[in-house]
Amino acid sequence: MDLGISGRAALVLGGGGGIGGAIAQILAEEGVKVAVADINPEAAEQRVAAIVEAGGRALGVEWDLSEFDAIEGNVRVVEESLGPIDILVNNTGGPPPSPVLGQDPTAWLNYFQSMVLSVIAITDSVVPGMRSRGWGRVITSTSSGVIAPIPNLGLSNALRASLLGWSKTLAREVAADGVTCNVVVPGRIGTQRTEFLDRAKSEREGKPVEQVWAESLAAIPAGRYGKPREYAAAVAFLAGAPASYITGSVVRVDGGLIASL
């Protein structure tokens, strides 16, 4: 299928990581010019190198999502190099495992700023241009915890859930201007973050990590962890022209893990 997005420009937040990197790579394969934004400049440049080696065009941007003053400057750098941003992929790192009760208010504020307010501010920066051009995609990657809260991921469950209400509201505000806004929810995707969480659970519950993995696999109807490219393929489709009538949706890429309707 031709996604009809060759030549457009995309900004992928967290593009140096497992999921973000796969999204950046697959968009580049569709002919998209990709800005790979990450707090780790080395990770961003490694992804840029992989994209360029495969014949694509990409730009690495060191981007700390907690620094609001850097947003306008970073957006300007991307657009001066690649052109107007037509596709925004909001993909942020998650907080450490924790119960929801008794967390320091400072932790709530800090993670709310980097995981939620930064996403809103960056979107506010690029959506006016999308509306004026009559075409745009805002795709926000969250967590399965927004549908079925994950034990001991209290901060993540609560903060990421707020992005669902925001995205749905935004979708209604900009739909008539050719801009779609959707949320994508990963199940157990095989990344370093997932491995970290599995090991943390192993230590917390005093189980061998192999037992944690086996229990996780048993809960997934597909019987395996997803691949980052499988998740990225869903994001790429939502970014494409054929998905122009999909907006305000929450798309699960979870191998059947989430049991609710």
Rank of each mutant, 00 (worst) to 15 (best):
L82G: 08
I71M: 05
R133Q: 03
G73C: 05
G56Q: 09
I71V: 14
R188D: 01
W135K: 15
G248R: 12
R252C: 11
N40H: 08
M115G: 02
P208G: 02
I139D: 04
I150N: 03
V116R: 02
A22P: 11
A232C: 09
S66D: 14
A171R: 04
V253T: 07
G256A: 14
M115A: 00
A70K: 14
V52K: 13
R131V: 09
I189R: 05
M130V: 09
L65Y: 08
V52Q: 12
A28V: 12
A44S: 13
G18T: 00
D254I: 08
G178P: 05
A222E: 04
E173H: 00
G93I: 10
G226C: 08
S244I: 06
P99I: 10
P151R: 08
E53P: 04
D198I: 03
E230C: 09
I246Y: 00
G31F: 10
D86I: 09
G55L: 12
T191Q: 03
L117C: 00
M1V: 15
E67I: 11
V32A: 03
T140V: 13
T140F: 05
V138G: 07
A37F: 07
S6H: 12
T180K: 04
E195Q: 12
A218H: 10
L155V: 10
A28I: 09
K201S: 03
S81M: 01
G256T: 14
G21Y: 13
P221A: 11
E79F: 05
G31V: 12
A161L: 09
V126E: 13
G145Q: 11
I220A: 08
Q46A: 10
L3D: 00
A148H: 14
V100R: 00
S6I: 06
F196W: 04
A239E: 12
A43E: 10
L101Q: 10
A158C: 10
V78K: 01
L163A: 01
A214I: 06
R193A: 13
M115E: 13
L82S: 07
F68R: 14
L164T: 14
I220C: 09
D104I: 15
N90E: 05
P208Q: 00
G7V: 02
R47I: 15
D86E: 15
L164F: 03
Q25D: 12
R204P: 01
V48H: 06
L109H: 04
V78N: 02
S132H: 14
S141R: 01
C181N: 15
N90R: 13
